[in-house]
Amino acid sequence: MEWIYDIIRGWAESGLLPSIFQHTFMIRGLLAALLIGPLLGAIGTVVVTKKLSFFTQTIGNAAMSGVAIGLLFGEPVDGTYAGLYGFCLIVALVMTFIKNRARLSNDTIIGVVLAQVLGIGIVLMILVTSQFNIHQVEAILFGSLITLNDTDLISLAAAALGAGILFMLTYNRVMLSSFNPVLSKARGLNPVFLEYLFVTLMTVVVVASLKLIGALLVLVLIVVPAAGAQNVVTNLRQFVWVSMFFATISTTVGLLLSGLVPVPSGAVIVLVSSVLFYGSLLFKAVFVRRE
């Protein structure tokens, strides 16, 4: 990893990048921001179309339980990967299963599970508090640039690469089956399988992004750029690109600002994405005529 850091540090020293990027933690943050920005932006377009915003939030909440479970099973404090990925994936898949079988509305299932995973998380955390650091919880909720380490970055890169490729391969089919599952079935697709696939890749990306933006704010970074893009685009292709652009600007500019002002990176990233959202709303009001 060091050679990448050295290159970026070189850019910062020569003035190509702001000088704050001479610090290793900022370089890691920048790499993470560049990896997850486009990915969250692109995934957000499907999340908004499928109306899965609060599903995403549930995954974020489940991360609390995931960390506690990881600790219970003896994972190190700064690397509860099995607990996090394991529990969040289980929650995501079980919710999708219930939704497909129980004929409850998505909204109802989310309401039930959202509360449960938070409750379980808090109980478990209190049970294991004696052996872990409260800052770790804060980092999960709000994101913490400082605790981002090489392992996080590598796991993030692997998740981003895998999810990104899968996303591109299945985008058209997932989009079509979000529109109308029965129609996509008539077209020879398997909408249930596609839903599980999308939920899985989304969960992996959400969990991988947690350290940078935090569980409470990951929803925002998935939904707000896509919502902002909706205000200014006129077709699906623009939707994906503008959403990716908004999300990447949010993560990188947010990161830079959080390096200058001592506040959690996630919160600043959300602020930047909000500014972009209201900006796009204004742009729409001024320049885009209604049909």
Partner: peptide, 9 residues
């Protein structure tokens, strides 16, 4: 088709 009318498709 039950979809969000705001989706730019």
């Amino acid at each position: 088709l039950d979809f969000d009318r705001a989706v730019p498709i």
